[in-house]
Amino acid sequence: MKTLFLFTLSVVLALNLSARENPFSMTDVFEEETGRMIEPNERPTTPEELQEAQYIREMQQKMSNANRNSVDTTTPKETKPVTKTYSKQEVDSLIQKTKKQTEQKTKEIVKKELANTKVAEPEQIVYVKPRADISEEDALVAKEILPFLKIEYSDNKLIIHTDNSVSKKFNIIKENKIVIDYKAKLNFNTKNENIDSKNFKKIAVGNHKSEGFFRVAIEVTTKPTNYNVTYKDNLITISKLN
C-alpha cells in the first residue's frame, strides 16, 4: 500500500510539473485519472486510500484554479471617439470669418436688387422763405429745371434765374406763350415741366447750340398780353396783371 501511495504521489508531482508547462494538457490527465479512480469497483475503502483520493482531488482542484487564473479573461476596452477642442483664438477667428462671409453675401444680394430696381429721381422742389416785398398769398416755390436754370413761382408771379444774358423776348399769341432767348452754347436735351400755379401752366427749355442760344417758353393760362415781363439784375420776372 505504501508503494502504491508513493507511486501515485510521484505521478501527481510529475503531472504538477507538466501543468506548469502546459496547463490545458494537465487538466485532461487529471480528469482521466480521477475518472479511473472513482470507478465503482475501485472505490477506496481503507483510510490510506481515502486520504490518497482526497489528496488527489485537492491537487486537481488547485491545478484547475491555476488553469483558470492563467487564462486572460480581460476584454479590450472600447475606444471612445476623440472630441476636437478649439482655443478661444480659434473660435474668435471662425466667428470673424463667418461674419465676413455673411457681409459679403449681403452686399452681393443688395447690388443685384439695386441693379434690377429703377430708382426714381425725386423732383427737386424747395420752399423758399417769402421775401419782404412779397405778400403771403404770393409765397414763392423754387424749382430747378436744369443745372444752369431755376425758377421761383406763385399763382401770380414767375421768376427765372440764370447766369446767361437775355438776347430776345417775344410772345406767341395763338399758343399763349411768353418766349425768352438766352445767349449760350450749352449741351442739354429739351426739358418740359408742369407748373402748379393758377396763371402759369408749363415751362419748356430748348437747345439751339448751333445758333448760339437756348430758348425758354412759358405757357400761361390767358393771353400773354395779360402779363408783365421785366428784366432786372439778371432776373426775368413775369407777373399777372389784374
Rank of each mutant, 00 (worst) to 15 (best):
R215A: 06
S93Y: 00
D138Y: 05
T190R: 09
K97G: 09
L15W: 06
D155F: 01
L158H: 04
N194C: 04
T102N: 09
I109W: 02
T34R: 08
K183Y: 13
E219V: 05
V29L: 09
S18A: 07
V220H: 01
P23S: 03
T83D: 06
E152W: 02
F30Y: 15
A14H: 04
Y231C: 00
P40K: 00
F170A: 01
G206E: 15
R215D: 01
N226S: 13
S165E: 15
S70A: 11
A139L: 12
F24M: 13
I159Y: 04
V11I: 12
E211L: 06
E32G: 13
K198P: 00
Y231H: 14
Q61T: 14
L146H: 09
K97E: 13
A14I: 05
N176V: 07
D163W: 03
E48Q: 12
L241D: 02
V126E: 11
K143Y: 15
I134V: 14
F148E: 04
Y86D: 11
L4V: 12
N171L: 13
V82P: 06
F188A: 04
E103S: 10
I134F: 12
F188C: 00
L6F: 15
D133I: 11
L235K: 08
N171S: 15
I180C: 00
E21V: 14
E137R: 10
I238Y: 00
E113S: 08
L4A: 09
P81F: 01
E33M: 12
D133S: 07
K183N: 09
I236Q: 00
K99W: 05
F213M: 02
S18W: 13
A132F: 06
N187F: 11
G206K: 08
V71E: 14
E136C: 03
S18Y: 13
Y153H: 01
K198N: 02
V29A: 12
L235N: 07
R131W: 11
T8N: 06
I172F: 12
E136L: 09
A142L: 05
E58Y: 11
L17S: 03
T34A: 11
V119T: 10
Y231M: 07
R68D: 15
A217S: 08
T8P: 03
I203Y: 02
S70C: 04
D28A: 08
S25G: 07
V110W: 00
P224I: 03
P23E: 00
K209S: 15
Y86H: 08
N171D: 14
Y55L: 15
S70P: 11
Y153N: 03
A19K: 06
N176K: 12
N67C: 14
P130G: 06
Q61G: 10
S154N: 02
N116A: 13
E42W: 12
S154A: 02
Q104V: 12
E58R: 07
E152I: 01
R57T: 11
A66K: 04
E32I: 15
E32C: 14
S165M: 13
T3P: 07
L94H: 08
A14D: 03
K157Y: 06
T75H: 10
T117V: 01
V141A: 02
A139H: 12
N199F: 09
T75Q: 09
K157C: 00
